[in-house]
Write a protein that binds this DNA or RNA. Structure first.
Lengths: 167, 167
DNA sequence: GAATAGGTACTCGGATAATGCCTGTCCGAGTCTAGTGGG
DNA sequence: CCCACTAGACTCGGACAGGCATTATCCGAGTACCTATTC
């Protein structure tokens, strides 16, 4: 069970967008350059973030992505759900309790959810609660605490490459 | 992100083993019959449980599986880790923060873990703690509360099919 | 000189292949049982 | 009658394919900008 790595990309990209607080949107290609990621695939993840309303997209020349709301109002859960398509459900009960001879014999009403599913649901709720409680702003602070120069370096690199030399 | 469905099978099988508290081990084929599961694949899951020390296996005629310890001493986390092979890690940091131009520029020591990984780790710890706190005995009680006849039905069916008619 | 129309380049968006993991299956090694023959 | 041996069958264990989700990619639709032409 592994979370899609697009989550990591999405969070880092949102952090970069917050550091590059600029009036102009930033295209996916530029965001991909920052972390040396596959352009097309990151673009796909950004589309997911746009659909979820985390970032807003602008088409055409000088277009790109920008944060749709302050980064402190974006939770880690928002990004996870956006990338995973809302199906970030760790456990899906297949109701095998109903199958087989025993399931046939005990005709009990299965209206109550399976005990396994209930327990898994409780654990998953804890997981989601922790993710919801964490904002990208907090994560950004942690990232900068570990590597303080990152934000400035991002800004410097972006300014230098703003008008790239054409061949 | 979906948990392997073998987890559900493993838990139900362990519950069945606890209900069929018998001195004799129960072969995987019999366990598979209970819930109408693919025999070979369930056997594979049972092997994983055996490797993890949750059940003990006996080879040869009259062989099979039995619980290695009381069911109240088996946590849901034990089963999840056993089936998932210990790699039930929801998030794996690929350290993209080091890649790309910015990562190169900011030569900061990356000894501290990435902020994203840390936040994910906290959420995952909550998840694992909830799973660890839940014993299969509790789940069994919930299952029986929902469908009270299950345990008896399992015992009856097992006794009836103990000496199956050969063709 | 200013405005407008057209062309061009750039960007997102969704539709389309390739890869890896989970699912599913098979056969061989080992072990216990049961039957048989001998003491 | 009891014991040892042998043959048989049963069970687990690990090695071997198939299906599907994730990963990765591409091309088309739309938009803004820039340029050239006209008034």
């Amino acid at each position: 069970m592994r979370l899609a790595e697009g989550v990591e990309w999405g969070v880092h990209s949102c952090l970069a967008l917050s550091w590059l607080e600029d009036e102009a949107p930033i295209p996916a290609a530029r965001l991909a350059d920052i972390h040396d990621l596959p352009v097309a695939y990151l673009a796909k993840q950004m589309q997911a973030l746009a659909r979820a309303g985390i970032v807003s997209s602008t088409s055409g020349a000088r277009g790109g992505f920008r944060l749709a709301r302050p980064i402190r109002e974006i939770s880690l859960l928002d990004v996870v759900d956006a990338i995973e398509g809302g199906r970030a459900v760790t456990f899906e009960c297949t109701e095998i309790r109903r199958r087989g001879p025993v399931g046939q014999v005990s005709d009990s009403s299965f209206s109550a959810p399976c005990g396994i599913a209930a327990a898994m649901r409780r654990a998953e709720d804890n997981w989601r609660a922790a993710l919801k409680h964490t904002s990208l702003a907090e994560i950004g602070r942690e990232v900068l605490a570990a590597a303080p120069g990152t934000a400035d370096a991002t800004r410097v690199w972006f300014a230098q490459s703003r008008n790239p030399v054409r061949n």
